[in-house]
C-alpha cells in the first residue's frame, strides 16, 4: 500500500477527536482542551493551522515591549534575523508558525541575551487600515527575564480579553501576573478569560554559532517588519493622567 503514515494518523486522530470538538470548536467553552502549553513549541499552532483554513497571506502585527530599552530581532527559521528593531519593536508574523526572538542590549541584564519563542495561535480582525494600530503585545517584564536568567522556563499565554468579563485594570500589565501552577494547562486557564492568541516561552537556551540547527530559530513562517508609523487617523483624545474617583454624586445639568 502506498498510503503514507501521516495521512493515516491524521485521519484517525481527526476521526477520534471530531465527535467532541466538532460541536464546540477547539477553543470554545469548557470541555476537552486539546491545546496545552506543555506541548513542544510550535505544536499548538500547528494543530490549529491544520484544522483551520485561514488566509495564509495574512500577517498578524505584533509588538514587543521590554522592561526599558533594548534590541529585538525576529528569526523566522533562519540564523539571520528576518527583522530587527529597537524596543518597542513591531513586526508582522504568520499564524500557525513558531518564531524565535533575540532580546539583547538590555540595561537590566547587560551581559545576557534572551531567545524566547513565539507561537501564534490566532489572529485579530481589525477594520481595514487599522491593522498596525492594534498589534498583539508581547510584554517581557523584568521578573520574567530574571527567572529565565536563573534557569527557569517562563511560559505566558497571551489571550484576547472578553469585554463582558473584563476587569477594571489592564490584565497584561498588572504588577502581579495571573499565574497558574506548573502542572496546570495555561491555555485552558487563559481561555477562561478570553481567546488564546499566542504562547511565549522564555528559557535559557542560546544558540552556538555554526552549530545550531535551523529549527531552533522557528518553523520558517512568513515574517516582515512593521511599516513606518503613519500619522494616526483617529480623532480620539487622550485622557489626563489622573482621573477623579467614581463616587455616587448628583450633578446638575448644564442649563
Amino acid at each position: 500500500m502506498k498510503f503514507s503514515a501521516p495521512l493515516l494518523l491524521l485521519s484517525l486522530l481527526t476521526a477520534v477527536s471530531g465527535g467532541s470538538a466538532a460541536a464546540q470548536g477547539p477553543l470554545a467553552g469548557p470541555g476537552w482542551q486539546p491545546l496545552n502549553d506543555r506541548l513542544p513549541p510550535g505544536y499548538n499552532a500547528a494543530i490549529l493551522q491544520r484544522i483551520r483554513s485561514e488566509d495564509a497571506t495574512w500577517l498578524q502585527p505584533m509588538r514587543v515591549e521590554l522592561p526599558s530599552t533594548g534590541s529585538v530581532a525576529l528569526h523566522a527559521g533562519q540564523p539571520a534575523p528576518a527583522a530587527e528593531s529597537a524596543a518597542p519593536a513591531s513586526f508582522a508574523i504568520g499564524m500557525g508558525h513558531l518564531y524565535r526572538l533575540r532580546l539583547s542590549e538590555l540595561p537590566e541584564f547587560p551581559a545576557a541575551e534572551f531567545y524566547p519563542t513565539i507561537e501564534l495561535l490566532d489572529r485579530l480582525h481589525p477594520p481595514a487600515g487599522q491593522e498596525f494600530q492594534h498589534p498583539i503585545p508581547f510584554v517581557f517584564t523584568a521578573d520574567d527575564l530574571r527567572l529565565a536568567a536563573s534557569g527557569a522556563l517562563v511560559t505566558r499565554v497571551i489571550y484576547l480579553e472578553r469585554p463582558q468579563t473584563a476587569a477594571s485594570d489592564d490584565p497584561l500589565r498588572r504588577e502581579r501576573p495571573h499565574t497558574v501552577p506548573a502542572g496546570d494547562n495555561a491555555v485552558a486557564a487563559a481561555e477562561m478569560h478570553g481567546r488564546p492568541l499566542a504562547i511565549v516561552r522564555i528559557g535559557g537556551r542560546v544558540p552556538v554559532d555554526g552549530q545550531t540547527p535551523p529549527f531552533f530559530f522557528g518553523s520558517g513562517g512568513p515574517a516582515a517588519a512593521a511599516p513606518a508609523p503613519a500619522p494616526e487617523p483617529r480623532s480620539a483624545r487622550r485622557a489626563p493622567q489622573t482621573t477623579s474617583a467614581q463616587q455616587s454624586s448628583t450633578v446638575a445639568s448644564r442649563h
Binding site: D37, L124, P126, P127, Q130, H134, I136, P137, V139, D144, L147, S150, G151, A152, L153, V154, T155, R156, V157, I158, Y159, L160, E161, P163, A166, D170, P171, L172, P177, H178, T179, V180, P181, A182, G183, D184, A186, A189, A190, H193, G194, L197, V200
Partner: peptide, 30 residues
C-alpha cells in the same frame, strides 16, 4: 474596536519551584 489583552503565566524549573515551595507548604506536594 478596542481589543485588550491579558496573559497567564506559568513557571517551570528547579529554581522557581524551590522559591515557591518555601513560601507555601502546600505547594511542595504539587
Amino acid at each position: 474596536y478596542a481589543p485588550r489583552f491579558g496573559s497567564v503565566r506559568t513557571t517551570t524549573g528547579l529554581a522557581a519551584d524551590t522559591k515557591i515551595d518555601k513560601a507555601v507548604g502546600a505547594r511542595e506536594a504539587a
